Computed example of a mutant assay.
Amino acid sequence: MGKLGVIIVAAGKGSRMGTAESKQYLQLGQKPILVHTLQLFQNIHEVDEIILVVGADDVNRCEAYVTGYALTKVTRVLAGGAERQDSVRQGLQALQEGTEWVLVHDGVRPFVKIEHVFECLAKAQEVGSAVLAVPVKDTIKVVDAADKRIQSTPDRRSLWAIQTPQAFRLSLLQEAHEAALRDQFIGTDDASLVERLGAAVHVVEGDYYNIKITTPEDLPWADWILHNVRGEERS
Rank of each mutant, 00 (worst) to 15 (best):
V59L: 05
A94W: 08
Q96D: 12
V47H: 06
A122M: 06
Q39P: 00
P165K: 05
F185I: 12
W221N: 05
V112K: 01
E126W: 02
C120M: 11
E21N: 05
F185W: 12
Q90M: 15
F168H: 07
E100C: 02
T37N: 06
D223M: 08
D57L: 12
Q24D: 13
H105I: 13
L172R: 01
F168S: 02
G98F: 09
P216W: 10
M17D: 11
G2E: 14
E126T: 13
D155F: 11
I44C: 04
V136F: 00
I33E: 04
V59A: 02
A82V: 13
A10D: 09
D147Q: 10
E100P: 02
K73W: 10
I114Q: 13
S15Q: 12
T164P: 02
K13M: 12
S158L: 13
G55N: 11
G206E: 00
Q125T: 07
E175Y: 01
Y25P: 00
W160P: 01
K113D: 09
L193D: 06
V74S: 03
G80M: 05
A200R: 14
V142F: 09
I150C: 09
V59T: 10
Q42K: 11
E100M: 03
P110T: 12
D147T: 14
V74A: 06
L4I: 15
L34P: 02
G187F: 07
L78S: 08
K137C: 08
A124E: 03
K212L: 08
V53S: 01
A94E: 08
H45V: 10
I33T: 06
I162L: 14
Q174K: 11
V35M: 03
E115M: 07
A222H: 08
K13Y: 10
D58Y: 11
D183G: 05
C62W: 02
F41E: 04
F41A: 00
T72E: 12
M1V: 09
A179E: 13
V203N: 03
L219W: 10
L103R: 00
W224L: 15
V203H: 11
S235W: 08
A82G: 02
E83Y: 12
T139E: 15
V74D: 03
Q30L: 10
A191G: 15
V134D: 13
W224D: 11
S15V: 14
R156N: 12
F185H: 14
D189F: 07
L71Y: 06
H177V: 01
L226P: 04
H177Y: 15
L173S: 07
G29W: 07
Q174E: 14
A191I: 05
V74R: 00
V131T: 12
S22D: 15
Q42T: 10
A64T: 14
A94I: 10
A70K: 10
V88L: 09
T19Y: 13
G91T: 09
G2R: 10
N228L: 09
V108T: 12
S22R: 14
D57F: 09
A64R: 14
V108D: 15
A146P: 02
K3Q: 14
N210E: 08
G91W: 03
G80Y: 03
N43S: 14
K113A: 11
F41S: 04
G128N: 03
Q30I: 07
V204N: 01
L173C: 09
L132C: 06
T139L: 14
G68R: 06
A200G: 00
